[in-house]
């Protein structure tokens, strides 16, 4: 195998795109089944999780409460071409979750991304819709409140540097 084939082989193994049976080369068949590879994979996920928890504290806390943190970090690692730079990685993770099927995860990741952008000096105003009462969400994440129930009302959360505490909540009729 040449350098390109070897490196692409490792990439595909780590990203879960190929398994041992997909390789003709004996070396890769053995590596894919080895404890060494499992440990390497664990290290890779550990450091992504570490960076994400540090940078995306609110969303990480939500995912941990929902017992979905590990699953989401692993799928993010597999599916997304992320940057090695922590700030880029964190933002990409939040963008990745912005379209999550779980509306709670989608809202919180959008909200945190907007807060980060404002903190970094963005003068944009961000509007994020929520099917949940935002205070219920924050109580659930930060104060061990109960899981928020979907409301019959719709809420609009505005995030902007011009607002006190950087955000405000409006009820949409």
């Amino acid at each position: 195998m040449n350098l390109k084939e070897i490196q692409t082989g490792y990439l595909d193994l780590l990203k879960g795109r190929r398994n041992s049976l997909d390789f003709k080369d004996e070396y890769f068949r053995e590596v894919a089944e080895s404890k060494n590879f499992r440990v390497l994979n664990d290290i890779v996920i550990y450091w992504r999780a570490h960076g994400i928890r540090e940078y995306c504290a609110i969303t990480s806390e939500l995912l941990i409460k929902l017992d979905k943190f590990q699953e989401k970090v692993e799928s993010f690692y597999r599916d997304i071409n992320f940057s090695g730079y922590i700030e880029e990685l964190g933002k990409t993770f939040l963008q990745y979750l912005s379209d999550d099927d779980d509306k709670l995860i989608s809202f919180v990741s959008r909200f945190e991304l907007a807060l980060i952008n404002v903190n970094l000096g963005s003068d944009k105003e961000y509007s994020i819709e929520s099917d949940f009462e935002p205070d219920d969400i924050f109580r659930f994440i930060l104060d061990n409140g109960k899981y928020p129930e979907q409301s019959i009302k719709k809420f609009l959360v505005i995030v902007s540097e011009r607002l006190e505490n950087f955000y405000t909540v409006e009820v949409k009729e």
Binding site: L3, W47, F82, S83, G84
Partner: peptide, 20 residues
């Protein structure tokens, strides 16, 4: 190396020590 085809591996791997 930490990247392959522009994608981050999330780790650093050693190189095959070949002439190439």
């Amino acid at each position: 190396y930490t990247k392959v085809s522009g994608e981050s591996l999330g780790t650093m791997l050693s190189l095959p020590r070949t002439n190439e």
